[in-house]
């Protein structure tokens, strides 16, 4: 349910960047989301389509990149791609792992239409 307030922050950041670059409009917005970020991509998309109306980003496409959940084992040093509720090393089954991808929630880049 907090996707809408998240979108508000996202749009704020995007509009600020667009203003800084004196852009006429925003072409696309790329966001990276991990499965452990606690955000539902579909809800983020629908919230964004509501909130962008009447702004510089009105025509912008929201590109969501889903980051895989990857853990690094501190016992045997292997990296494994895992599911969000089983963050164990696939090689040695240790739970002494560190998450190296999967909890991100990042505005990665913004494509702007700028006058020459």
């Amino acid at each position: 349910m907090h996707e809408l307030s998240l979108c508000d922050d996202l749009l704020g950041q995007v509009i600020a960047i667009a203003a800084k670059h004196k852009a006429q409009s925003v072409e696309s917005i790329t966001v990276a989301i991990g499965a452990l970020a606690g955000v539902e991509p579909l809800l983020l998309e629908s919230a964004f389509s509501l909130i962008k109306a009447g702004t510089l980003a009105e025509q912008a496409q929201l590109i969501l990149q889903t980051a895989p959940v990857i853990v690094l084992c501190r016992t045997c040093g292997t990296q494994s791609e895992v599911t969000p509720n089983r963050l164990l090393c696939k090689t040695c089954q240790s739970n002494e792992t560190t998450l190296i991808s999967g909890d991100e929630l990042i505005l990665a880049s913004v494509a702007l239409n700028c006058p020459d």
């Binding site: 950041q13 960047i17 852009a23 072409e27 990276a32 990149q65 990042i106 880049s109 494509a111």
Partner: peptide, 20 residues
């Protein structure tokens, strides 16, 4: 994943990398 950017004509892509 995050760094992948596709250049396009007439469009400036700004890398942001800011936590939402």
């Amino acid at each position: 994943l995050v760094m992948a950017e596709k250049p396009k004509n007439g469009v400036t892509t700004v890398s942001v990398l800011q936590n939402l």
